[in-house]
Amino acid sequence: MRFLPALLLSPALLLAACAPTTQSRGPDYSLLSGNYQGTASLGPIPASYELLLNINGRTGRANGILTRASNGNVYTAEGRFLPYDANGGTIDLTLSSGSSDAGTFKARVQAGKLEGVMKTTLFTFQVRMQKQGVTAPTPRPALGVPLPRTSVTLETTQTQTTSVPVYVEPTPVKPARP
């Protein structure tokens, strides 16, 4: 008879243990993804670059397409993302052009800025980029404070479409041997 109350409570405890709980998913690093434009400098010589970056904070993966504006060279970038706080992290990417390795790209990404180093077989570039399409939020007046009659507040949703050329190299097909 001593164990009867414990037996009656155990199903309730099991159900409580199985009940869904509200858990924090952690920071949303997808806000770091986007279109970055800036320069990669070799000493005093800057070259314009654009990076279309995709970050998945849950899997720790990062990938993208890096384009040099002056000659249109396109590099695919794949690697990892390491968060260092709730607002940013570092990317460590391997660059490739077609099927050949083109170098590495390591940078810190935070608050719409990307700063780091791009290394190729011959050179090391200092990279500084800004996220494009980022607008500052419109300040809202405090409740109960009337707006001046000469001002108009207009809220819009802006979308920006970026197209990036993609080059596909055909894979040679070997005929079957008889």
Rank of each mutant, 00 (worst) to 15 (best):
R177T: 14
E78C: 00
V127L: 02
V152Y: 14
Q158V: 10
A47Q: 14
P175C: 03
P139A: 03
S163W: 15
N35H: 09
Y167T: 13
P83R: 03
P20V: 05
L52I: 05
T22H: 04
T59L: 07
R80Q: 14
G43Q: 06
T59G: 07
L93T: 09
Q130L: 04
A86W: 12
T161K: 09
G60D: 08
G88P: 04
P137D: 06
T161C: 05
G43R: 01
G79T: 06
P5E: 06
L154F: 11
R58F: 14
T76M: 08
L154C: 06
F3H: 08
I45L: 14
F105N: 02
A142G: 08
T135S: 09
Q37K: 12
G144N: 10
G38V: 04
V127H: 01
A19N: 08
P83I: 07
Q126I: 08
T162F: 10
N63F: 00
L66D: 10
S151E: 14
L143K: 10
I91V: 12
P165H: 05
L15M: 00
R2Y: 11
Q132Y: 03
V134H: 03
S10I: 11
G38M: 04
P46G: 01
Q158D: 13
T104Q: 13
Q160T: 13
R108N: 09
T156W: 07
S41V: 00
I55T: 01
A176R: 03
L13T: 06
G112A: 02
S151N: 10
S48E: 15
T162A: 05
